[in-house]
Nucleic acid binder design. Structure first.
Length: 484
RNA sequence: GGCCCCAUCGUCUAGUGGUUAGGACAUAGCCCUUUCACGGCUGUAACAGGGGUUCAAAUCCCCUUGGGGUCACCA
């Protein structure tokens, strides 16, 4: 047995941001580990020096932290099997590459990139899969030593034995088979001495005692290479689970060109981490019942690899929006207050001061009407500034030649009350309507236009009460001036 | 193109041989509400096609079609 307790890992390469597909992979690993009291490891696969991005690792970690996916071992945290940055492990990989050469499971290759390109082009012309032709496998020991001692640039390649059937079991897809004839003699160690993904991944998964390799389906076709490596090194093969891909609306692999893919983008737009996690968890997994709303601990307790789907899932923003509303509604006023205050900083009202009581009043009446907390500043702008224009269609429909006079009367009534309650506003309104022998609507709608400029929103008496007597009176004066 | 994976409403999915094929999002309508929402109710909407196996197939097998992934000294 590799390890008594299940150990899984999320092994992203630091490209600058965390992809939502990556988030889902990380989440499934995390949920799986937490569900069976295993360990979740974060390992950074930074073996491509050409693609090194400054600050990418920190960014990755902080995004993971934001999402609430915390790891047991990894960079910044350490652990028994570190270091967890592959760039700090290159000696380890070269040691195993040497071992593979000794076992004749790998060999030096001195081919120039020109030769390789030419070879590939010819193969493509014939509509064949491009594969290395094992040219350097025929080199004698003498030739190899000579090349090595003259410092000729070289790589180390996996020696794939043709004519074999590579079988492995995938937890999600069950038995998968490849012919070794279609497995390329993959480069294991590059000219710059850094390992490729395939070597580093297998070595680390073994050394870090990973029991379950849970990763995206894009890795399925390179899994035979990994199986060959495990066998060559005489190591126990972990359980593979290849997750279905996240897709664009046109069913291609989720990509930047067709929308936001970075977790940060969703964070910026105001999505709750709870909603994103909930949504992404349901993209490819279901507990089998009709439950759609999940808190993180519910996901942990019901998650199982057995119920992960096989087919790709389109990232449907509509459902995410709905889940965001659902999670928003579960938040307490205090939590929303905290969020609203932070959004206030980024809003155009950032210079203004509001006390908690005021903001909580606004939250209470607005919370059911918004999908995002920042929408309170958009839909409920009139709690933060005077309306300067009045919705045209609303004016046309609700404002008539009596409206100014009716509002004047209403204003007079309010002026007489010292500090009006919601009921005072309501009673004054009913009285005004009665006096004019008209329906409440002929007061309500012009009044709503006066204080908010729009025709929709929370109950009118709530609005009046929250903005208060003075603003109510001023806004009534303003609309009469402007519309008459 | 080779290889591999996949296939139920527009979308996410339930379904493991016998169901009026269920739910959710979206969408349409109605109700609630003198506003907008929320909420409630109702509706439209799916087993890719063709062969088998079976008394019986969305479910098992095969083929076709379609979609996707992958074929780097990137991960």
């Amino acid at each position: 047995m590799i390890s008594d307790i299940p150990r899984v890992r999320f092994a992203p390469s630091p490209t600058g941001y965390l992809h939502v597909g990556g988030l889902r992979t990380a989440l499934y690993n995390y949920l799986f580990a937490k569900n069976i009291k295993g360990k979740f490891i974060l390992r950074i696969e930074d073996t491509d020096r050409n693609r090194y991005v400054q600050g990418a690792v920190e960014n990755l970690i902080s995004t993971l932290n934001w999402a609430g996916i915390d790891y047991d071992e990894g960079p910044e945290k350490g652990g028994e099997y570190g270091p967890y940055l592959q760039s700090e492990r290159i000696d380890i990989y070269s040691q195993y590459a040497d071992l593979l050469i000794k076992k004749k499971k790998a060999y030096y290759c001195f081919c120039s990139s020109e030769r390789l390109t030419k070879l590939r082009e010819e193969q493509q012309k014939q509509n064949k899969q491009s594969m290395y032709d094992k040219h350097c496998l025929g080199l004698t020991g003498e030739e190899i030593n000579r090349n090595l001692s003259t410092g000729l640039p070289h790589v180390i390649r996996l020696n794939v034995e043709p004519g074999k059937v590579i079988k492995f079991n995938d937890h999600i897809r069950e038995d998968v088979e490849f012919s070794s004839n279609v497995v390329d003699d993959q480069v294991l160690i590059k000219t710059d001495k850094y390992p490729t993904y395939h070597l580093a991944n297998v070595v680390d998964d073994h050394l870090m005692k990973i029991t379950h390799v849970i990763r995206g389906e894009e890795w399925l076709s390179s899994t035979p290479k990994h199986v060959i490596l495990y066998e060559a090194l005489e190591w126990e093969i972990p359980i593979f689970a290849h997750l279905p891909l996240l897709l664009n609306a046109d069913r291609s692999k989720l990509s930047k060109r067709q929308g936001d893919v970075a977790v940060e983008d969703y964070k910026k737009k105001g999505y709750l981490k709870e909603a994103l996690i909930n949504f992404v968890a349901l993209l490819g997994w279901t507990a089998g019942d009709d439950k759609e709303y999940y808190e993180i601990d519910e996901l942990i307790s019901s998650f199982s690899l057995d119920r992960v789907n096989k087919s790709g899932a389109i990232f449907d923003i509509e459902k995410l929006n709905w889940l965001n509303e659902e999670h928003l509604r579960k938040k307490s006023d205090i939590e929303l207050l905290k969020m609203l205050r932070s959004e206030l900083q980024d809003s155009k009202f950032s210079g203004q001061e509001y006390n908690d009581e005021y903001l909580i009043n606004v939250i209470e009446v607005m919370r059911e009407t918004v999908s995002f907390i920042k929408e309170i500043f958009e839909k409920g702008f009139y709690f933060f500034e005077e309306p300067t224009t009045y919705e045209e269609a609303g004016v046309k429909k609700r404002w008539n030649n009596q409206s100014a006079e009716i509002l004047k009367q209403y204003k007079t009534k309010i002026e007489l009350i010292t500090s009006p309650t919601r009921e005072d506003y309501e009673n004054a309104l009913k009285d005004t309507a009665l006096q004019n022998n008209t329906g409440n609507g002929n007061v309500i709608h012009p009044l709503r236009l006066a204080v908010s400029g729009v025709t929709g929103g929370p109950g009118i008496f709530d609005i009046l009460y929250i903005i208060g007597k003075e603003k109510t009176i001023n806004r009534i004066k303003a609309i009469i001036e402007k519309l008459n």
